[in-house]
């Protein structure tokens, strides 16, 4: 009976993994600073990643779930956050005269969308909707590895494949055709801190930023997790000893 239990548990836990892996070939894994049980985000990489997002992605991709104040978490000062927010205008109102008015965004405002609405986004991108990036690493199979590989996966299309009009060949995209032109290449963003700005570094940084955006609680979560598991282990051990004592008398 114990064997059945083990069998059941193994089956359950391999379930998703198998289902996931049977889909596509193997997705190359990247070394991330936030992997593992003690993984954390590199603040410098997050700030660089935000720069990449701002200069490269933000033209088409919204991040509606983020507030400018969230940037405090990745090490920007209050003044910096205020300045970043103030670069964008938001519609507010109505004022006392009943009119809507534009004002510079504040830290308590959400990231301003590049387009007024989804239809405008589609119209400006050949009918393809640039997805919101707030939780993108949670919304794609293989998460951060997939996004990283996708950014690095632009290649010459093989001859037998007819790439559609306004489409680009990408090794990792479903169906290998993507409406987004290669967004990142060597040196496309200048870094202030002297970090090498080759395409791999740019992609790694922006994906780190996207991962943080999707799971801002990651560090707190892992930290608390270690404590909770330790708690159950200690309590479990003590109760186990107590149980052995207690049951010794049962005949």
């Amino acid at each position: 009976m114990t064997k059945i239990l083990i069998l059941i548990l193994t089956l359950i836990f391999t379930f998703n993994v198998h289902a996931a892996e049977s889909n596509k070939g193997s997705m190359p894994k990247h070394e991330w600073s936030f992997n593992g049980i003690t993984g954390t985000f590199d603040r410098a990489a997050l700030q660089r990643g935000f720069k990449v997002y701002r200069e490269v992605c933000a033209g088409c991709h919204s991040m509606k779930l983020l507030y400018y104040r969230d940037l405090l978490d990745i090490g920007f000062s209050e003044a910096q956050v205020k300045a970043i927010a103030a670069e964008h205008d938001v519609l507010d109102g109505p004022n006392d005269e009943g009119e809507m008015f534009e004002r510079p965004a504040r830290p308590a405002d959400r990231f301003v969308n590049p387009y007024l609405n989804d239809n405008e986004a589609r119209a400006n991108n050949n009918g393809a909707y640039p997805p919101d990036l707030s939780v993108i690493t949670k919304a794609r199979r293989y998460g951060e590895d997939y996004i990283y590989n996708l950014l690095m996966g632009y290649e010459e299309a093989p001859e037998e494949l007819e790439v559609g009009d306004g489409m680009y060949y990408n090794k990792w995209m479903d169906g290998n055709q993507i409406a987004m032109p290669a967004p990142i290449y060597d040196g496309s963003v200048d870094y202030d801190d002297g970090t090498d700005n080759n395409a791999a570094q740019l992609s790694e940084d922006v994906v780190t930023f996207l991962k943080w955006s999707a799971e801002p609680e990651l560090e707190v979560r892992k930290n608390l997790g270690i404590k909770v598991i330790l708690f159950f282990l200690v309590l479990g051990t003590i109760v186990y000893l107590a149980k052995n004592r207690l049951w010794r008398e049962v005949h």
Partner: peptide, 23 residues
């Protein structure tokens, strides 16, 4: 001494359990 040890174990179980529940 057995009894004492058991008392200690029971006491720590209850204490840790209570702390855990509060947390």
């Amino acid at each position: 001494s057995n009894n004492k040890r058991r008392d200690f174990l029971q006491l720590s179980t209850v204490t840790i359990g209570a702390v855990g529940t509060a947390a």
